[in-house]
Simulated scan of single mutants.
Amino acid sequence: MSQSAPPKALTATDIRARKGTTPLVCLTAYTTPVAKIADGECDLVLVGDSVGMVLHGLPSTLAVTMEMMILHGQAVARGLSKALMVVDMPFASYEESPAQALRNAARLMAETGCGAVKLEGGCHMAETIRFLVQRGIPVMAHIGLTPQSVNALGGYHVQGKGEDAAQILKDAKAVSDAGAFSVVLEKVPAALADEITAQIPIPTVGIGASAGCDGQILVIDDMLGLFDQFKPNFVKRYAHLAQDATRAVSAYATEVRARDFPAAEHIFTDKTAIKGEKS
């Protein structure tokens, strides 16, 4: 009996071709087990610099390093077979010059096997995006609320209100013209996100934007209810795993203190066959 061929991994070109078709399903992942879960449904999995806040307890993404992104990128790669893996370029790894961006983007791709990188910024990063794309590195852009610029933006506020909408639209056109294969629109008014989606030829991926975008992305720990230090107002909780885990740990602690765990079925005797146990 012939075995079916493994699924072909999606590429940046495949994602770009999805413009205006079935919405793209995108999530973050930082570990192999979570990547395996996401791969079953997602078109694109982002190894986001949000890992610094979600897994490392940092107050923002600014202290995330190349080494952290590479470590988590390698872990996620082991769990993917279908989805395109995109890795965030961390703060200060690309802003200095296109040459600096090329060195670090090439390192990310070589050491993680990712199919693309993501960087933040609009018009002012267009030259860098073009430089990378011309040298064979697919780039996902990110405009609107750009968390690496949170200090300059004065906080995690909606971007593109009123007269500022024109600048966000310019940013979208600039990254598209520079060769980005898609662009994340974070925390921008829905009407502006719809206008951008209609005016540029590459897919828009919304997070706190509009259902009219070409796709959506969320931080997986947010939507699973694992990260509960705060809840962005654009996040829908699809599960409450932190609460479930808290109850489970409490039940475990109660049983240990009462000597109810381990029970007879959880311990070994001289006659017990030890098969496949793990510590």
Rank of each mutant, 00 (worst) to 15 (best):
Ala264Cys: 07
Lys170Asn: 12
Gly57Tyr: 01
Ala63His: 00
His142Ile: 12
Gly179Lys: 01
Ser176Phe: 03
His142Gln: 10
Ala152Arg: 05
Gly155Ala: 08
Gln159Arg: 15
Gly79Asn: 05
Leu55Gln: 12
Ile217His: 10
Pro7Gly: 11
Thr112Leu: 06
Ala166Gln: 08
His56Ala: 07
Asp39Arg: 04
Leu185Gln: 01
Gln199Asp: 08
Gly122His: 02
Tyr238Gln: 09
Ala101Cys: 01
Asp221Arg: 01
His72Tyr: 04
Leu192Trp: 08
Val76Leu: 09
Gly155Thr: 02
Gly225Pro: 08
Ala191Ile: 08
Gln148His: 05
Gln199Gly: 12
Cys42His: 05
Ala29Thr: 06
Glu95Ser: 14
Val76Glu: 06
Ala264Met: 13
Gly206Arg: 07
Gly215Cys: 12
Leu62Tyr: 07
Ile168Met: 07
Thr269Gly: 10
Val34Ser: 05
Val87His: 00
Ser60Gln: 00
Asp244Ile: 08
Gly40Asp: 06
Ala29Asp: 09
Met89Gly: 06
Asp214Arg: 12
Phe261Asn: 03
Gly225Met: 11
Leu10Val: 10
Ser279Phe: 15
Asn104Gly: 05
Thr204Gln: 02
Ile202Trp: 01
Cys42Tyr: 02
Asp194His: 07
Ala5Thr: 10
Gly52Asp: 03
Asp214Met: 13
Gly122Leu: 13
Ile207Gly: 13
Ser182Arg: 05
Ala263Gly: 07
Met109Asn: 07
Leu71Phe: 01
Ile196Lys: 06
Tyr94Ile: 14
Ala198Pro: 06
Met69Glu: 02
Val47Ser: 06
Asp228Tyr: 02
Gln229Ser: 14
Val150Thr: 06
